[in-house]
Design a protein around this nucleic acid. Structure first.
Length: 504
RNA sequence: GGCCCGUUCGUCUAGGGGUUAGGACACGUCCCUUUCACGGAUGAAACACGGGUUCGAUUCCCGUACGGGCUACCA
């Protein structure tokens, strides 16, 4: 019988969760949903030196904003496998038990080497032109560990409270083969795998031990993680095997990485000219905060949508998907092997799409504080009409201002290009007629404005609409002209036309 | 350097032994529009290279190049 699908997202709280992490979480979530399984949030806080205040809370908030909520785990309610923080699990002695099992079966050993001794070994090996210095079946013979030291010395060291780590006893030359859901069969020789530290000298497990123990204990069916873990997967296979748990091992899936749009490599928060964090993130150790997608004006729907299409596609020409839709069609078979460069331009396009789907009232609500900041306030009805008018031109709510500010602010100058091209000695008479017609408008609505505009044309000939636009707003572009005039109000429009005709 | 993984338009990608190699973003042109957009149409734009296998390879195999990841008592 197939195991119940249980997957986990297991970040370490060493900083803000960036978009690559969110995508890993997303794929886990989608897979769980598709198969009616569980999605777990586990916090891998085994490195006390890298712990960052606020990171865990950030992760939880970010997942909530994205709408990819775990149904079990830290911040989302304890399930049957609590606690979900590895530091707490360590206190329960869970990892030590497994490490001891490996010691007992001879598949792990104690090592007493200090960090100076390890550095020294690497220097020695580099000097001897060893290309990849590592603690392994060969080099461990020259180091201080329970495989090289006499039994009673090991015993004395242990009883004397000497610092030690527990290392995996990796065989010298053995083919390790595993099947990755996304990559297929991968083969590595154990000579390439070092004797990984399983338990650190502070008693904390390393990732390698901890995630395996927890995946087993939490009955994880699929370990879905980034490609950066592929090289250590063979060591993990060995650990499962030596623990006698190979048959319970989760299936592995290594996701391709999200790459920088320009230049090379993984997305780096420092160099990126676009947001890399879902929510703004302030690292307590750094002065400047990183602005998030949310604060940049992205909708979570847009953010998740673009992420989903990085490294995966449905095989159709469709591109817009809600999380729920994705949960029906997502499959690892359609996940790519190669990394995907992130395209900020396309991300904006996605946001534009979702913005247009928003009701005008919601947009008005969101734009209100921005407008207030600029020193203007209008009633709800005005705001709704304004948003309706301008929304076709923007990708973000904050752009309502740039694309519509001339509705609030009378022009100081008039677009020179348009004026030079279109203003001539007949213009004054023409616009005098327009003014006269506008003054006669009783009900200042689009329909009547249009009628009176046509009346003016009947009297003086064709009126250049772009010129009219420039006289009123100062700029050559903008929303639908008569709609805009209706919104601005008769008084304002006539005032502006008066000013313009005076100046020219 | 070593090991592992990868490589279709600038970018995200579809496809797959015989196709005019399809779509999307961005870009160009046109249409619609008495203004501005939306929209519609259209254009330019790709199978990294070299060997095999095959009647035929972009597709399968092998090399090369290039890119990425890893190479810690970090995850």
């Amino acid at each position: 019988m197939e195991k119940r699908v249980r997957v986990r997202f297991a970040p370490s709280p060493t900083g803000g969760l960036h978009m690559g992490g969110v995508r890993t979480a997303l794929f886990n979530y989608l897979f769980a949903k598709k198969h009616g399984g569980d999605f777990i949030l586990r916090i891998e806080d085994t490195d006390q030196t890298r712990f960052v205040e606020g990171a865990e809370e950030y992760i939880i908030k970010a997942l909530k904003w994205c709408g990819i909520e775990p149904n079990e785990g830290v911040g989302f309610g304890d399930g049957p496998h609590a606690p979900y923080r590895q530091s707490e699990r360590k206190e329960l002695g869970i990892y030590k038990t497994y490490a001891d099992k490996l010691i007992a079966s001879g598949h792990a050993y104690y090592a007493f080497d200090t960090s100076e001794e390890l550095d020294e070994m690497r220097r020695r090996l580099e000097a001897a032109k060893v290309v990849a210095p590592q603690y392994n079946a060969v080099t461990r013979q020259n180091m201080r560990n329970s495989l090289t030291l006499p039994e009673d010395e090991v015993k004395n060291l242990m009883e004397g409270g000497a610092k030690y780590v527990i290392r995996l006893n990796v065989p010298r030359n053995e083919e390790i083969r595993f099947n990755d859901i996304i990559r297929g069969w991968v083969t590595v020789n154990s000579a390439q795998v070092d004797d990984k530290v399983l338990l650190k000298s502070d008693g904390m497990p390393t990732y390698h031990l901890a995630h395996i123990v927890d995946d087993i204990e939490m009955e994880i069916s699929h370990a879905v993680r980034g490609e950066e873990w592929l090289p250590s997967a063979p060591a993990h296979i060995l650990i499962y095997r030596y623990l006698g748990l190979e048959d319970q091992m989760p299936k592995l899936a290594h996701l391709p990485l999200i790459l920088n749009p320009d230049g090379n490599g993984k997305i780096s928060k420092r160099e990126a000219r676009f947001p890399v964090f879902p929510l703004s993130w302030q690292d307590p150790r750094e002065a400047t905060p990183y602005i998030g997608y949310k604060e940049s004006g992205y909708y979570p729907e847009a953010f998740v949508n673009i992420l989903a299409l990085l490294g995966w596609n449905p095989g159709t020409n469709e591109e817009f998907f809600t999380v729920d839709q994705l949960a029906h069609i997502f499959e690892f078979e359609r996940v790519h092997k190669s990394g995907a460069k992130f395209d900020p331009e396309k991300a904006k396009w996605f946001n534009q799409h979702y913005l247009r789907l928003k009701p005008d009232a919601e947009l008005a609500e969101a734009f209100k504080p921005i407008l207030k900041e600029k020193g203007f306030e209008r009633d709800q009805e005005f705001m709704i009409q304004f948003c309706k008018l301008v929304k076709e031109k923007v990708q973000f709510v904050q752009e309502f201002w740039d694309h519509g500010k001339y509705i609030f602010i009378a022009p100081q100058a008039y677009d020179e290009k348009v004026m030079a091209k279109k203003w001539n000695d007949k213009s004054r008479d023409i616009f005098d007629a327009v003014v006269a017609q506008f003054e006669a408008v009783k009900d200042w609505q689009v329909e009547e404005i249009t009628t009176h505009f046509h009346n003016a044309e009947a009297q003086v000939g064709k009126v250049d609409m772009q010129l009219l636009r420039v006289l009123i707003t100062g700029v050559a572009g903008g929303p639908q002209l008569f709609d805009m005039l209706a919104l601005m109000g008769k008084e304002e429009v006539l005032k502006r036309l008066g000013t313009a005709l005076n100046k020219l």
